[in-house]
Design a protein around this nucleic acid. Structure first.
Length: 1029
RNA sequence: GGACGAUUAGCUCAGUUGGUUAGAGCGCCACGUUGACAUCGUGGAGGUCACAGAUUCGAGUUCUGUAUCGUCCA
């Protein structure tokens, strides 16, 4: 006997096993079915999956399962990403916390070993999370961005780009993380406003001419960087710079609201004053720069020039700005323009290097203190102002970023970016929702070269061997030797000679395959491999083809590339999606996917991004534990509309009483809480003390999944009812036209729903699909069809036919729901198969072992019948009217009420055979039906003018006159309101003359109906009042 | 500073090309448990559609502006 509840915990593991044993999700590259393929956005091995991944993977699985059912050879390629810096940072942080060691204590090899251990642990966890969610990836294929297959793709790509001169070496100011001692990308830096100081310093002028100042004053928030100063800049044309700023302010004034105007006016006055006071001095400075006057840099006693550059803003500070090209992005640009030396004063660990003279070895804060004190002692320190400073912070180590000049490998983006832009512009790649196109195109149009070096140990080592400091002839000789090595290893070696410094050159060799012999041959010539690794996104960019075996010409690649669609989140459209497109085009000449769907991001109820660090992160496993995998998936699908964010309230689940407790901003971060329901304490992810850790842990979940769990239960129980009534099931052919209205209504609805669901999935309208299925399953299949089936199944004459139709209805519903709720549908499917293995309308067919591999339903256009649906809706309205009257009279469901239905002849023909259903749906006994049906002596009446029906309920046994009068009065006031609304509208001359005639006619008609209804209700009221007396 | 999105019932969200008195789920209130389901059923209460203008016979829906929140980019 089928149990009363679906025990997901019990069922899920078995179902997974059966699917696996039957190879349901394995893709066959040699199949002749049309291909459909998706690559998983590889989750980071940094940590476990959160609900955002849950959403992402649910949406993919829905598409994948649906396509598989449609008969495509479907590959969902799983895998994980090594996430270079993030993973290394996590492991390094733990190393520091647990063993108080740095990576340098451990050494490269040992650290990388540790990270592999971490990776193994989290990869296992991640894959289990995906499997538990029911993700139907091809688990026989599994890639990792650092595995040998992906590594071969990385090497081949790098080699190719190197040969095409699209990879070059250059110096670049990078965001240097002094803690992790690596450059981090712009995306890994956030800004924080901190309190700091604005120091005014004076640099003496060397040999000032008469009338010229003895010293120049500059101001800085980072005084220690003066050690690296190589110039002071002034504006080349201060007068027109002032004019330009003034013009800008005037423009702003013209656009300003009254409220803002005074502030802008004030700015203009201040600017004018400043111009008057400062312009002569600034012109003088400009002339000094032109004249080649120099400054003496204090503390280091170095001569530095005054240069003219527009970066010096006359309207700010003293109008002079110190230039530190190696430690400030803007100054770097000035340095390039004015050909200034780039003087690096930092060690990789953030201490001052030998260039800093006596400050060598000091940390930045210590150097700052010392520099300021020494300048003060020399009388060269001016004002020190308090000021708020925007400080760049590394997202990885949470320590301040230092701009730092370093050698980096770059990918030239000019042409590559253009190919990726073209692919989207001409819609070879379509992005949904469409609004995300713009961000993609804008970002690519900047065509900024891509710095791919990372000073890390975890990642693909850059396949470049080099040696520097050579004379041109030495280099040529080496080049000749390399040619010889290259001949021994055809297609494996590419090299180039490049300037190293002003008078020396370096030789760079790129080795294609990871081949120890080749590498050894190169090394024997005195070349050493670059210590850096590649940006993670370099390997991720190859994911759609590297996972299929490229550069090898595999059957998988032939069958499944290009992939069909990519489903991901918007924050990596540029970092990942754009780069996959250009790499796919470069390596294979074909876009990697034709459609990209960007799904929303999940926020908590305060509008904050969900994350573990915020304490509001939900683990999909916790939701599955509590509500089941189907509820998790359905709950996620139903929130996936086309907005960019969705909110999800977050609760703690009390481990003692299972109550859900709303998170507040405060409780999100507490190590322990007391359950307000049962009073017992529990711990959270923040628990640190032994005492707190000993408490049972409260999971973080969301009540949003409760609805979905209830839906699973509803489906289960409707199935249970159906199965309990399939005894003696005999498959039979069915003539649809001869079926009673309720069956044809079901088939018609199934036809519409199938079409809507198919179209919805094609357009990635998940929330719409979930809603349609929920409403159909609950409000139509359960609330009406199953209820109506009850009397029919106990009628021997109708039983067999009804069994066939309801089995078909359930069968179709299971198929339609399967992509969203795979477990419960599979479970019911196997019960159904036990009782009715051959089923279907109009012709029964063998259903197959798994719903997962069953055929996706087709929408039978010939089953769709507008008239039947309209007629059935009339029936539903009458049921509603009877229920309304019953409820207002407080009549118990166990009591049957006599009902008379006044309607026209065609309705009578329709409703006559349905009389029994009024009993099961509304406990009503239809005593009269048709045009001659009359009100009862003790009558309650509800008119349905839109279908020209009057419903009369006999209240003889039940009448509560006051309750009935109450109901009627309320009804009357509603009608009155509507009538006056309509009258106003129709009395409005311009409405009548200007609105389209059909609209006006409709309003007139509806007013007439309302007036009739009014009269009728009023009549009922006076009748009742008379009776009362 | 720029781009994008959101603002509709206590909460989370639907609302198709403008056209009856704006819907759902959860929560709330009332009633109901002898076989599909209390993870349920039936009924009910609850909304100046953020604000201000404009277009229109008519605006939750179109346009302009403002505010608040969020995300991304500088």
């Amino acid at each position: 006997m089928i149990p009363i509840r679906f025990d997901h915990a019990d069922a899920a593991a078995g179902i997974l096993q059966q699917w696996e044993a039957a190879g349901c999700s394995h893709a066959d590259a040699s199949s002749d079915k049309p291909p459909f393929s998706i690559v998983i956005p590889p989750p980071n091995v940094t940590g476990a999956l959160h609900l955002g991944h849950g959403l992402n993977n649910t949406l993919q699985d829905i598409v994948v399962r649906r396509k598989r059912m449609q008969g495509y050879e479907t590959l969902w390629m799983p895998g994980t990403d090594h996430a270079g810096i993030a993973t290394q940072a996590v492991v390094e942080r733990r190393l520091k916390e647990n063993e108080n060691q740095t990576r340098h204590d451990l050494g490269r090899e040992a650290l990388v070993d540790r990270i592999w251990q971490w990776k193994d642990q989290y990869e296992t966890r991640i894959l289990n999370q995906l499997k538990r969610m029911g993700c139907s990836c091809d688990w026989e294929r599994l890639r990792f961005t650092l595995d040998p297959v992906c590594a071969a793709a990385v090497r081949a790509t790098f080699f190719d780009l190197f040969q095409k001169q699209r990879i070059y070496r250059g110096k670049r100011l990078v965001n240097w993380d002094t803690f992790l001692q690596t450059a981090v990308s712009d995306d890994e830096v956030f800004n924080e406003t901190k309190k700091g100081h604005f120091y005014h310093l004076r640099y003496p002028v060397i040999d000032p001419q008469s009338g010229e100042p003895e010293s120049l004053e500059i101001a800085t928030t980072r005084p220690e960087t003066m050690l690296g100063d190589t110039a002071v800049a002034v504006h080349p044309d201060p007068a027109s710079a002032f004019d330009q700023v003034a013009a800008g302010l005037q423009e702003k004034l013209a656009e300003a609201s009254e409220k803002e105007k005074p502030a802008v006016e004030q700015q203009i006055t201040a600017l004018e004053k400043r111009r008057d006071e400062m312009l002569p001095q600034l012109l003088l400075l400009r002339d000094m720069a032109a004249d080649g006057r120099k400054l003496r840099l204090p503390l280091l006693d170095r001569e530095i020039p005054i240069v003219a550059d527009e970066w010096a803003k006359p309207e700010l500070g003293t109008g002079c700005v110190k230039i530190t090209p190696a430690h400030d992005p803007n100054d770097y640009e000035v340095g390039l323009r004015c050909q200034l030396p780039m003087l690096n004063v930092l060690q990789p660990d953030g201490t001052i290097n030998a260039e800093g003279g006596k400050y060598e070895g000091l940390t930045i804060p210590a150097a700052r203190k010392a520099v300021v004190a020494d300048l003060d002692a020399l009388g060269l320190l001016g004002d020190v102002e308090d000021r708020e400073i925007e400080l760049p912070i590394s997202d990885r180590s949470k320590t301040p970023i230092e701009p730092y000049l370093a050698d980096q490998w770059f990918v030239a983006m000019n042409e590559l970016a253009q190919t990726a832009m073209d692919a989207v512009a001409d819609e070879r790649v379509q992005i949904f929702p469409e609004r995300y196109r713009r961000g993609y195109l804008d970002w690519l149009s900047e065509k900024r070269d891509w710095p791919v070096s990372r000073q890390l140990w975890w990642g693909h080592r850059i396949p470049i061997w080099s040696t520097g400091g050579l004379s041109q002839s030495e280099a040529n000789e080496l080049s000749d030797q390399l040619e010889k090595v290259a001949q021994q290893h055809p297609g494996q070696i590419s090299h180039r000679i490049d300037a190293d410094s002003d008078d020396t050159v370096a030789v760079f060799v790129c080795v294609r395959d990871e081949d120890e012999t080749v590498e050894a041959d190169v090394q024997s010539l005195g070349l050493a491999q670059d210590p850096d690794v590649l940006d993670t996104w370099f390997s991720s960019a190859l994911w759609p083809h590297s996972t299929l075996g490229w550069p090898a010409e595999t059957a998988e690649l032939a069958k499944f590339y290009p992939t069909s669609t990519l489903i991901t989140s918007r924050d990596i459209i540029t970092l990942w999606v754009a780069r996959m497109v250009l790499m796919g085009l470069n390596n294979l000449g074909e876009v990697p996917f034709s459609e990209v769907f960007i799904h929303p991001k999940i926020l908590d109820s305060f509008g904050k991004t969900m994350s573990k660090t915020a304490g509001n992160g939900i683990d999909p496993n916790d939701v599955t534990d509590k509500f089941g995998p189907d509820a998790l998936r359905f709950g996620l699908a139903r929130i996936a509309g086309d907005t960019q964010d969705v909110r999800m309230p977050v609760q703690f689940e009390c481990p003692s009483c299972e109550k859900l407790i709303d998170q507040t901003r405060k409780t999100q971060k507490l190590p322990r809480l007391d359950c307000p329901a049962c009073g017992k304490p529990f711990s959270t992810q923040w628990a640190e003390t032994e005492e707190d850790k000993a408490l049972p842990k409260g999971a973080v979940v969301s009540e949003r999944f409760e609805t979905a769990r209830n839906f699973v239960n509803k489906l289960w129980n409707a199935s249970r009812f159906t199965l309990m009534n399939l005894e003696g099931f005999q498959p039979q052919s069915i003539d649809v036209a001869s079926l009673p209205i309720e069956d044809r209504w079901l088939l018609s609805r199934l036809s519409s729903v199938t079409e809507q669901v198919s179209e919805g999935i094609d357009r990635y309208q998940y929330s719409e699909v979930a809603r349609i299925l929920y409403d159909f399953a609950w409000d139509e299949f359960c609330s009406f069809y199953v209820e109506i089936a009850k009397p029919r199944l106990s009628d021997p004459e109708q039983k067999a036919m009804t069994q066939n139709v309801i089995a078909h209805g359930l069968d179709q519903l299971l198929r339609l729901l399967h992509p969203i709720m795979p477990f419960v549908t599979e479970s019911v499917w196997s019960y159904l198969g036990g009782l009715a293995p051959r089923r279907g309308v109009p012709e029964p067919v063998n259903a197959g072992a798994f719903v997962m591999t069953s055929e996706w339903p087709t929408a039978h256009a010939d089953h769709h019948d507008v008239k039947i649906e309209r007629q059935f809706s009339e029936f539903q309205k009458i049921i509603g009217a009877i229920r309304q009257i019953r409820a207002s009279q407080n009549i118990k469901p166990s009591e049957t009420v006599p009902v008379a239905i006044r309607c026209d002849e065609s309705s009578r023909e329709l409703l006559e055979p349905m009389k029994a259903y009024f009993a099961s749906l509304a406990s009503a006994d239809i005593v009269a039906i048709g045009s001659d049906a009359k009100p009862f002596e003790t009558d309650a009446h509800l008119g349905l003018p839109e279908v020209d029906v009057d419903v009369h309920v006999d209240l003889e046994k039940f009448i509560d006159v006051d309750a009935e009068l109450g109901r009627l009065e309320k009804l009357l006031s509603q009608i009155t309101g509507q009538i006056s609304g309509k009258e106003n509208k129709l009395n409005n001359e311009s409405f009548v003359s200007r609105a389209p005639a059909p609209i006006v006619a409709k309003e007139r008609e509806s007013l007439t109906g309302l007036r009739e209804q009014y009269a009728s209700v009023q009549n009922d009221i006076s009748r009742l009042k008379a009776k009362k007396r």
